[in-house]
Design a protein around this nucleic acid. Structure first.
Length: 497
DNA sequence: GCCGGAACGT
DNA sequence: ACGTTCCGGC
């Protein structure tokens, strides 16, 4: 059957071009056939994941959530990460369209969603009909395997690592960044994403950089406290969720997932994802407020064309963000969690995958579940398995279901992935803190000056006792390190003296 | 509505 | 691996 599954729905125009095809390819982007649409390959799931090029339901859900036109069908609602399927039938229909499954219905779709429970991508919001909640730490990971994170063990190590990792964090340096994003040209002056951001002067540079690595400055990796445990979430801002999730998501997943997509239905070939501009205006308040009006409005080189009605999500109207934000974002107030011992053994089994580079060093605390545990990198299970066997691998005992009731990310951070032994892989030479940049004040206070964890609880110690300032959080945005590197150096000197 | 087992398809 | 389909049970 050759159904026309594309349903141009969700074909979000990726964003006008800062990328040229050449640039994209240098960065390891994937090109979508003759259409010339490029996406960074990290926008896909890890290669180790078979079928990674195929749209997954949660991708699709996020896409829908991102699109304003589907707000009446599905939308963010309630807590952080929570969304409501307002029109189950319609969502199912759209999903069926996408997957060329004409008989799709909500019952089936919801079954697929339920499979995400075990993977901790989603969980159900009990008592609320058609309401689910994303576990963004997982979602983000899948989209941002962060490449060779194993060799860049400096990000947020202590926030989501389940306490087993070394307390050290390396400062973000250009070198570290390079190792993080090896595909970025090292010194292609003026051409690389890196340089673009690195050379951006002053506060504007920060903005750009922040946006360059949205996954570092937003979403899961950044919150230091489980959304549900956070203080009152700004429910009532100009828009509910001010910042876009992943500029690549919609484009990447929707455009490439259906091979039958008629070439003509795609965006003009000059549209390429533009990490620099995509969601600037979709940043949470602290971020978006930094944007100069011109930038927010999408000035500059952005072509006027191509934005399918959504006006880039920023100009004029409120952006319909995809991922709900956690404005507080990350705190570098690392806490020394020397004890990883409390982490469940089961989780350890699931996620600790020695020898796999991908997840190791994921100090970001991004879940490994999908990237490693869930996907079974390393191919432990080599052959074919019976369904029951397969299931057994995921859920080893019925009781384990309890951990699936994740209602906040602290659970995630503690009961699963972060547990992998980063420590041994992360030989941080010396520095044990992430430099705080992008803040007017300059560097992060030395570790010793950070408030000690008050709660003896290993999990709670992961959480800062006081919410981060409303201003730009201690972003991990690597790019920040670039710009203020000199400042850091100065600060370090002071600290050392 | 929601859950999760089972078989099956890709 | 990631669903899809079906289904019994709550």
């Amino acid at each position: 059957m050759d159904c026309n599954c594309v349903s141009d729905l969700l074909l979000t125009p990726p964003v006008p071009a800062l990328w040229t095809p050449g640039e994209a390819s240098r960065m390891g982007a994937l090109f979508c056939g003759s259409r010339g649409i490029a996406f960074p390959d990290w926008a896909y799931k890890p290669e180790s994941s078979p079928g990674s090029r195929q749209i997954q339901l949660w991708h699709f859900i996020l896409e829908l959530l991102q699109k304003e036109e589907y707000q009446s069908v599905i939308s963010w609602q309630g807590e952080y990460g929570e969304f409501v399927i307002k029109d189950p039938d319609e969502v199912a229909k759209l999903w069926g369209l996408r997957k060329c499954k004409p008989h799709m219905n909500y019952d089936k779709l919801s079954r697929a969603l339920r499979y995400y429970y075990n993977k901790r991508i989603l969980h159900k919001t009990k008592g609320k009909r058609f309401t689910y909640k994303f576990n963004f730490s997982k979602v983000v990971l899948v989209n941002y395997p962060l490449l060779d994170m194993a060799s860049s063990p400096f990000l947020l190590q202590n926030h989501f690592n389940g306490g087993s990792a070394a307390p050290d964090c390396s400062p973000l340096t250009p070198e570290a960044l390079q190792s993080l994003f090896p595909r970025l040209p090292e010194s292609g002056r003026g051409t690389s994403l890196f340089d673009r951001v690195a050379t951006a002067p002053g506060p504007e540079g920060d903005k750009l950089r922040l946006d360059t690595f949205p996954f570092l400055s937003s979403a899961a990796p950044c919150y230091s406290k489980p959304p549900s445990l956070l203080g009152p979430y700004p429910r009532n801002p100009p828009f509910d969720y001010p910042w876009g999730f992943n500029p690549y998501l919609s484009g990447a997943f929707s455009l490439n997932n259906c091979p039958k997509l008629p070439p003509g239905s795609l965006y003009p070939s000059h549209f390429y994802p533009n990490p620099l501009q995509t969601n600037l205006g979709q940043l949470p308040h602290p971020f978006s407020s930094l944007l100069p009006p011109g930038e927010v409005a999408g000035g500059g080189e952005r072509g006027a064309a191509g934005q399918t009605g959504v006006t880039n999500g920023t100009a004029g109207g409120q952006p319909r963000l995809c991922l709900p934000p956690y404005p507080g974002a990350l705190s570098l107030g690392r806490t020394d969690i020397g004890n990883g011992g409390s982490v469940g053994e089961r989780e350890r089994r699931e996620t600790n995958t020695p020898g796999t580079g991908l997840g190791l060093g994921l100090g970001l605390g991004l879940g490994l579940g999908l990237g490693l545990g869930g996907m079974g990198l390393g191919g432990g299970a080599g052959g074919r398995q019976s369904p029951s066997e397969r299931r057994g691998g995921v859920k080893q005992d019925p009781e384990s279901d309890s951990d699936l009731e994740i209602t906040d990310l602290s659970d995630c951070s503690s009961d699963n992935e972060p547990d992998f032994s980063i420590t041994k892989e992360t030989r941080l030479s010396g520095r044990s803190q992430i430099l705080v940049e992008g803040k007017k004040g300059g560097a992060l206070p030395p570790l010793s000056s950070l408030p000690p964890p008050v709660s003896p609880h290993p999990l709670k110690s992961l959480v800062p006792l006081t919410p981060p300032p409303p201003s730009l959080p201690l972003s991990l945005s690597p790019s920040m390190a670039l710009v203020e590197r000199h400042r850091e150096t100065e600060t370090l000197k002071l600290i050392h003296s």
